[in-house]
């Protein structure tokens, strides 16, 4: 078979990208109105929101969140705070 530069889609094509971050989101559920802003703007689909998961509150992906802080910036209720992530 001819060898070609062809790939299939996968998660983690850049590895475990959470290793890049120095800060990570801390979620404060009491303040959250499930407005979806954090989900909408997350560049890395590291926030998922679904009515039947986690009571509809955001779920943060600890393997692929790069710690960019966009979610904390766009949250209208300050329900996300960025805290230091020094790794394991």
């Amino acid at each position: 078979m001819v060898k070609l530069p062809v790939l299939k889609p996968i998660d983690g094509s850049a590895g475990r990208t959470a290793d890049w971050r120095t800060v990570k989101p801390k979620f404060i559920q009491d303040k959250c109105t499930k407005c979806l802003s954090c989900w909408l703007f997350c560049p890395d689909i590291a926030i998922s929101m679904s009515e039947n998961v986690n009571d509809g509150f955001p779920v943060f992906d600890d393997d692929y969140c790069k710690g960019c802080s966009i979610c904390a910036e766009v949250c209208p209720r300050d329900a996300i705070e960025m805290v230091p992530d020094v790794g394991e």
Partner: peptide, 23 residues
């Protein structure tokens, strides 16, 4: 879906080149 021709490693490029001579 596939991606044709994204970033490719040095050793991967060597393999692809060698295969041209097979072709």
């Amino acid at each position: 879906p596939v991606s044709y021709g994204p970033l490719w490693s040095p050793s991967g490029i060597t393999e692809i080149r060698e295969d041209i001579d097979v072709g």
